[in-house]
């Protein structure tokens, strides 16, 4: 589904990603862990197409498409989703209109007619239930006045609405209390299928108790220094990163 090969990316003259290789297959969940400043969020931003980063070498192949050639919206329409670490507030644009535009752009891309009102409402209700959101939120501005936990739940809700093939969740667990964490993780687990995949970026092993990864990568100084099974996350939690960095 996703093949990242020798990916290098910079901001200005500073190289942040220094050769990343990751292969994600359909049905898999990958976790990327690593200390602050190792390049985790840069990787997710580069994959989603944020233009503050310049890709200087390497390739990213998504379902046979050269991902790096696409605009951010084209990547989304192809089935890529980024759950933001810091979801953005958009005053004056209601959640419901935001989602309607997003769904209809996706449908247009697939050659489908715009979704009808009844169908859309049903979809909204169904997906809001997944993250235990109440109805009042749909008329509010996107993320405006939302608590940290509500913003993260909104990310999972949007993901559920758009039903991506590959979702990258960038520190979705940061700032969440244990109940919100459970809701978010359950949301992800309900959406897991054999034909989609997840990349979960996190600082803590805690989230991985709920979302069990197939592969754990440790990112340090712009490189993957270790990839292994889910037991790696537990080892990192117990021993920190130093033993990996110094080995």
């Amino acid at each position: 589904m996703l093949e990242i090969k020798d990916l290098h990316a910079s901001v200005g003259s500073r190289e942040i990603l220094k050769g990343i290789d990751i292969l994600v297959k359909a049905g898999e969940t990958h976790a990327i862990m690593g200390p602050n400043g190792s390049g985790k969020s840069t990787l997710s931003s580069v994959l989603a197409g944020r233009d503050t980063f310049e890709v200087t070498a390497g390739s990213v192949n998504f379902k046979g498409i050269d991902l790096l050639e696409l605009e951010p919206e084209e990547r989304a329409r192809e089935g890529l989703f980024l759950g933001f670490q810091y979801p953005v507030e958009i005053p004056g644009v209601s959640n419901v209109n935001f989602m309607k535009s997003a769904i209809n752009e996706q449908r247009k891309f697939k050659g489908l007619a715009p979704i009808n009102a009844a169908e859309f409402l049903k979809l909204m209700r169904e997906k809001m239930a997944i993250v235990e959101m109440d109805n009042s939120f749909s008329g509010r501005g996107v993320n405006v006045g939302f608590s940290g936990g509500e913003k993260k739940r909104n990310e999972i809700f949007q993901m559920a609405m758009l039903d991506p093939q590959l979702a990258i969740l960038d520190e979705t667990d940061s700032g969440l209390d244990i109940d919100a964490l459970r809701i978010v993780a359950n949301g992800v687990n309900k959406l897991k299928r054999a034909d989609n995949a997840f990349i979960v970026i996190t600082h803590y092993q805690r989230l991985l108790d709920y979302i069990v990864p197939d592969v754990v990568h440790v990112l340090y100084d712009g490189k993957i220094i270790k990839s292994a099974g889910k037991e790696l996350a537990i080892e990192v939690e117990e021993r920190g990163y130093d033993w990996l960095i110094n080995s």
């Binding site: 989603a48 919206e73 953005v88 958009i90 004056g92 535009s101 997003a102 758009l162």
Partner: peptide, 23 residues
């Protein structure tokens, strides 16, 4: 930031700009 957020959900650049202006 809001434009990128909207684009990352599949909303085209022009449409995202328009939505902000309308709001």
């Amino acid at each position: 930031e809001a434009l990128f957020y909207m684009r990352s959900r599949g909303i085209g650049y022009d449409e995202a700009k328009l939505q902000q202006q309308l709001a």
